[in-house]
Design a protein around this nucleic acid. Structure first.
Lengths: 256, 256
DNA sequence: CTCTATTCTCGTACATCGTACGGAATTGAG
DNA sequence: CTCAATTCCGTACGATGTACGAGAATAGAG
């Protein structure tokens, strides 16, 4: 979610001195090329495939076999195309990922208008997002590197902004809240998924438990030892999510 | 941060039906192999390198050239080793990444004991983490796939748990708060970094602004249009962070 | 119709990645 | 010394993203 008013990060002479990160100087994905390209002139050979079909195939692949199964070769094979044909529809794999993210965001259609109780509405949004991400477990990972919101994402954002209207916050704050809420949900679901994956292989889970037990027993981590030893009813991930979401949203101070 | 009491996710017959995610069935990294291995028997050829040196080289590389520059070949070259020698010290690259994360976490040493004002202490922790991540911009991305906390991470966690003692929350809740706080900071800093990267290439920033302007002008996104048009003083990333952190922590309801 | 410009298709090829394998080198124990 | 253990690392393999360019299909111009 890189949604900020254009000039808000470098104003005037202020120099940002952050060293290069993941995709440092690289131009990334051009939004115009991605979301704004008009229906091209009808000329030349007729296309055999479509963005839609390619994206859908990639999504299906990610859903059933995980994000790492989404390779250009696999996707191409899935729709019966040559590998290089994909590059007619998307300039590179990163772009295909963005297409995938926005594609599934189409499922996030909201029918109910805002109720006026923005806290409650925001919780509904978060639960929608959680269910959505559980259905597409690769989403949290994919969202981490997403740049430009596509039409489906924008539609959902539009709804979120409407929900936040009663807060009276300025635009930037509303955008930030949505971005942070999405990040929170992605983070939480990401952990849920990772946890579930660990639990699914017993030796792995046992190894982890043994490690933590060893750390707790070394005497240098009394707080951790106590935290791990404490009873505390085992909550479902759902309950944990709700509790945390409540803490987050109910406490949102909107007066400053 | 996969820190949960061992049995808290699958209790009894409850089946987790989440489809495969990023590293689905794969065993990942064995914590014992990673953090608990004792000083091996003194026999055979003397080691020419060390985990420390390898990890430090990898970190230096990530700091200056980004995470994608950290390849086994580059790291090996950096310390004058053959590529395959690295595998004596770490079983695979994922493990090396975990080593890197914990290595830099060594900088997070906290000297001041908790003051008793846990909200204030928590904010201090978050600011520490933010500065830390800005110094190592690859951290937010690397943290997303981290599994088992190493000694330095555990030391910091221990401090955080001590800070949270006055809340009276149970262990699981405290662990969750720390995990979510870390996730929040990582998410925020990740966006800061991405934003800075975009701003650094003017054409890229302009393209993005043009795209958003086009969307705002299409008539289908009135809320977004208003949010983008609103004045709102351009805040420094620091200020935005503090404001959000305040909203998050001040509102944390600890009574349930 | 033919010609030509345009567009899509995709086989081949290459650089780069993580890492399996196995032999050479070095060490301490018996 | 012999032997087993341990480290070092050159070579090699399979997989990946994608540049390149030759061919095929299409639509308008003449």
């Amino acid at each position: 979610m890189a949604l900020t008013r254009a000039a808000s990060t470098t104003s005037g002479k202020e120099r940002v001195t952050v060293p290069p990160a993941e995709g440092s100087g690289a131009p990334g994905v051009d939004p115009a090329q991605l979301w704004l390209r008009p229906t091209e002139p009808r000329r030349g050979r007729r296309p055999s495939f479509s963005r839609e079909a390619i994206t859908a195939a990639a999504v299906a692949l990610a859903d059933t076999e995980g994000l790492e199964a989404v390779t250009m070769r696999r996707v191409a094979a899935e729709i019966g195309a040559g590998v290089m044909s994909l590059y007619t529809y998307a300039p590179d794999k990163e772009t295909l990922l963005e297409l995938m993210v926005d594609h599934v965001s189409g499922e996030l259609t909201v029918t109910d208008p805002p109720t006026g109780d923005w806290r409650s509405d925001l919780k509904t949004i978060a639960h929608l997002q959680r269910a959505h991400m559980l259905r597409h477990p690769w989403l949290p990972a994919a969202l981490a590197t997403r740049r430009v919101p596509g039409p489906n994402t924008l539609a959902f954002l539009e709804h979120a902004l409407a929900v936040l209207r009663p807060t009276g916050l300025d635009g930037a704050a509303k955008l930030e809240i949505f971005a942070q809420l999405t990040a929170f949900v992605a983070g939480h679901v990401g952990h849920e998924i990772a946890q579930a994956a660990v639990s699914r292989s017993p030796d792995r889970a046992a190894a982890e438990a043994r490690y933590l037990a060893a750390v707790a027993a070394d005497g240098h981590h009394p707080e951790l030892a106590e935290a791990l030893a404490a009873p505390g009813l085992p909550l479902t991930p759902e309950a944990t999510f709700s509790r945390f979401l409540g803490r987050l949203i109910d406490g949102l101070d909107v007066t400053h």
